[in-house]
Amino acid sequence: MTTLSKKKKHEGLITGPSFFWLLIFFIIPTLIVFAIAFKPATPFGGIGEGWTLGTLFDLRNPNYPAIIWRTVWLSLVSTVVCLLLAVPCGYCIARAPKRLRDVLLLLVIVPFWTNFLIRIFAWKVLLHPEGMLKQALVFLHLCSPDATLLYNPFTVLLVIIYTYLPFAILPVYAAAEKFDYSLIEAARDLGASQFRAFTRIFLPGISRGVWTALLMVFIPALGSYVIPDIVGGPGSEMIGNKIAQRTFVDRNLPHASALSALLTLAVMVPLMITLVNHYRQPVVQRKGKGAAQ
């Protein structure tokens, strides 16, 4: 028993600093945001005295359902597309010969060397009616000269996918790199076609990487506001834009906090359920092993 409590103490010492970091810079600020949602706003952009539920009722803005729906589908679709691209990419990089693998990894990381805003503006240049991509598409008769490639939800989708694809590829690659490929041979040997070996053995084998990739894309996509702000039009606003607008334009912090809290809850609840379900499995396994010995 003494060794057990000693072990607990050690664990506490080791995890302590990161816990305090999370507490001070993540949990407390989030709680403050939640608290402000229940405060009245002052006309000068400050936070008033007392508590109110009024801000929550203000959220029944007739524009919001459409914006929330757009935010959700843009995030979902971009996550799905990113995963569909990341799994084959991660597989190919992991299977490539060592030198080619390093080059491919570098290519995935290279975009990070350029400022995020500059890369988004670059898309503006590409998609602009006089831009290179637009001109090329018109030249190839793939799009009509009148089509607008900028300032619509699909542009936002394209740029979100572009931005977050590396964040999906890297965890998938990390998992695929550790995957034991003799398992694929074993599956093929046992009568699985290439496709079934991929779906039945490879995908479950890299599931952690896929889950991480999913979170790495879905959460930032849900909260994105710079991308719709720059390449999106009035019809492609996302919830992040509304929060920014309430904060900087309307100077209504309680309203912005309420929207933020709503977004946080919307992300956290399904996430927690999935994570708990997913990460509970190894614990059960360990128990089983203990019983076996």
């Binding site: 034991d180 003799s182 041979e185 074993a186 046992l190 053995i201 479950p204 084998g205």
Partner: peptide
């Protein structure tokens, strides 16, 4: 069918 050197059992 093959019995592999490292067994190659499916861990999941």
């Amino acid at each position: 069918n093959t019995v592999f050197q490292n067994y190659a059992l499916f861990p999941h």
